[in-house]
Every structure is written in C-alpha cells, then in structure tokens.
Design a protein around this nucleic acid. Sequence first.
DNA 1: CCCTGAATGTAGACGCCGACAACAATGATG
DNA 2: CATCATTGTTGTCGGCGTCTACATTCAGGG
Lengths: 204, 204
Amino acid sequence: MQTRPRRYHHGDLRAALLTRAGETLEEKGPGALSLRELARDLGVSHAAPSRHFKDKQALLDALALAGFERLLATLTASQETAGESFADRLGALARTYVGFATANAELLDLMFAVKHDPEASEALVKAAHSMGGLAAELITQAQRRGEVREGPLETIAIPIFSTLNGFARLAVSVTLPSATLDRDLEHVIAHTLRGCAPDSPAPR
Amino acid sequence: MQTRPRRYHHGDLRAALLTRAGETLEEKGPGALSLRELARDLGVSHAAPSRHFKDKQALLDALALAGFERLLATLTASQETAGESFADRLGALARTYVGFATANAELLDLMFAVKHDPEASEALVKAAHSMGGLAAELITQAQRRGEVREGPLETIAIPIFSTLNGFARLAVSVTLPSATLDRDLEHVIAHTLRGCAPDSPAPR
DNA sequence: CCCTGAATGTAGACGCCGACAACAATGATG
DNA sequence: CATCATTGTTGTCGGCGTCTACATTCAGGG
C-alpha cells in the first residue's frame, strides 16, 4: 500500500517544495522551516532541495517573490470588481490588502523582511514596485476625476501605501485587538480619504 | 597580558548578553545570532546564557522589550523639545520614529515580529500600548487646541500610527530609495496632517 | 537504438547549533 | 563558618545547513 510508485525523480520538486514550505510557514512560523524536514515530508533525500535552491535563503526569497506575485494578482482583481469612485477603489484595495495580510501573516513578514540575498532583492524590489504601479494608476485616475488633490504622484502614493502596509502589520502583530479590526480598518480608510481629498473649494 | 582577571562570575552577564546581541543583530541580521557565539564573544561557556534566558526566543523577546522601552523614551524626549503646534509635535514624533527605525532596522523587525512567547507577548503588548498612550496624549491635546478634528481617539490614533510604522518599515526594507527618503517623510507628515485636520470651517 | 552528457536525486560527512543534565565555583545569609 | 541558592562549566544529544562524491534518470544526436 505504497501511496506512490516513488519514482527516482519527483516530477516537480521545486514547486512542491515551495507550496509545502508556504504551508508550514503559516502553520508553525519561519523558525520551524527546515530544508531537511521539507525533504522528509516530500519523501526525498535531505540534499535534494539543494538542486533547486542553492540555499535556505534562496528558498525564502523565492517564497517571498511568489507572495508578491500572488498579492499583486489579488489586488489587481480587487480593482476590476470595484466601483468607479476613488473611495470605492481605495476601499477595495485596502480591504483586500489587509485580508491578504491576515491570511498570510508570516508570508508578509517574509516579503518585507530586511534581509535578502542581493540578487534576489533585485527581483523582489521589482515586484514591490509593480505594486507601486498599481497605486499610481489608482491615483492618477482619481486625480483626473477630481477626487484626489493635485500634486506629484509620490506625495500621495507613498503615504497611502505606508498607511496600508502599516495597518496590515499592526493587525497581524499582537498589537491590535482583533475584535475591532474591521472597524479600525474603516477608520483608516476614511482617514486616508481625508488626506487625499482636494482642497475643499469652499464647502458648506 | 590578560584583558581581565577572568573571574568565575561575570558580574552582569545578562546585560552583557543583551547589548552584545543587539550589536550583532544590527550588524549581521537575526539569522547570525547564536547563543554559542554570544557566549564565546563574552568569554563564557556555551551554556552560561541559559542561566539568564531559558531559550533563544526568551533572549529575543527581552531584546524586543528593551527596544520598545528605548523607543518610547526617545519618542517621549522628542515631544519635550518640540513646539506647541500639532504640526510641530507630529513632525517631531515622525522624524524621531523613522530615525530610530533606520538606525535599528533589525530591532524594529524583531519588535513587531509575529511570533513571540505568549507570556513575553504580554509584556510586549503592554510596551506597545504605552506608545499608543503617547499618541493619545498628543491627539487629545491637539483636539483641545482645535488643530485636529473631533471624534473618538482610535479613529485618529490608529491611522496615524499605521502610517508612521508603515513608512518606517518601507524605509527600512529595500522597497524605498534612500536618496529621497527625507523628502518622502515630509510628504507623509503633510499627508497625515491633512487627514487629521478639522473640517475646514469655510476657508479663504 | 544506443551513447553520452546534463539534470536530478542519494548517501555520507563535517561543523555548528540549541537544549539538557550533572557537576563546580562563588557569594549571600544565618 | 555552614549552608544553600546563584551562576558558570563540561559533556552530550539530536537536528540542522552545506559540501562532496556517487547513482539514476532523461533527452537529444549519432
């Protein structure tokens, strides 16, 4: 009753390593991630992973990169089903982002970790910047609609992304009580909208 | 030419471990932190640290806690030399916070890490919340001065802290080019001030 | 169809690590 | 000065990441 023929070659060990690593990462934290245990889980010798990742760090980097791609895809999708107004679109973005963060806490930690291999960093920075592109699109469009104040892109995009990412991390860390989390997120969205609003042209 | 008499008892090994650990943490990252190497550096046997920290995690937790205390002290000091206006005080807070973050990148990572011992978490959460207290004071005072819109505290404090912490982490992570960092910070401060401003009572 | 070389996986070894236990020196308290 | 808790030491254990040498499989050209 052997589950699998146990071929000499696994088929797609690289992908299997990544998915399994992602699972144990969320389950038991990054400290519990060991290449040897991973290999054992996949029924493969302890040195096999080194054929696909030269390093433990290389695997972590690949994991982070995949995380960025997944997050980017999710965020992009959220924009397609959102309404037209800036408030709608920003809200959708924020809720999606925080949703991803709470569902993938450890992964987010990894993605924004300080330490990465220099060459992997290149790819990671590129991935992170493509998220910046998403924000840029959102903002320039809203500026055209007159829903966001004028000014160079980065004076708006960076604060927005800071807030988003910052709140996501607070939510994930123990710092914030999870009971009021949804309400807090709405406060954050409202606050951000205020900060983006055009100078009120004589209200009342 | 022995540097020290090498007494059997170190004197204050616990403190020495913490400071040395803090140094190597910033220098070589958290992965390079090993209890054994720490012990070697301090000229002490490999098992000596276990008398002061039951665990490697316990040492990390203590490090994080010390970090919170240091950060809190720095932030508090920044408020004492700042001006009266909300803009001044928030600016001072933000610049100090980001300064601490860039100077202690790895430590900040540690402080807001997802994983901590449950019992240590208690102390850590308490420390984090005392920072919230600082923010609360800042805000209620500004509300009294009419420089910040009315409303329950957390609708303002949480967005502010999210932004601050989020920007600090962006700055530290590779994501943001360090060249424009100071300018970006000013944008973030300005944006935050906008978000906090009272509903403009008929401008012009 | 086989041969050959590149991918991929295996087996073994090395040094380092964190944790534990048994023991030794020190210092405080009476 | 006797006693006992504190603090440090030595030795050991299993697990880990990485390296090297070797085995199996696969793909492509003769």
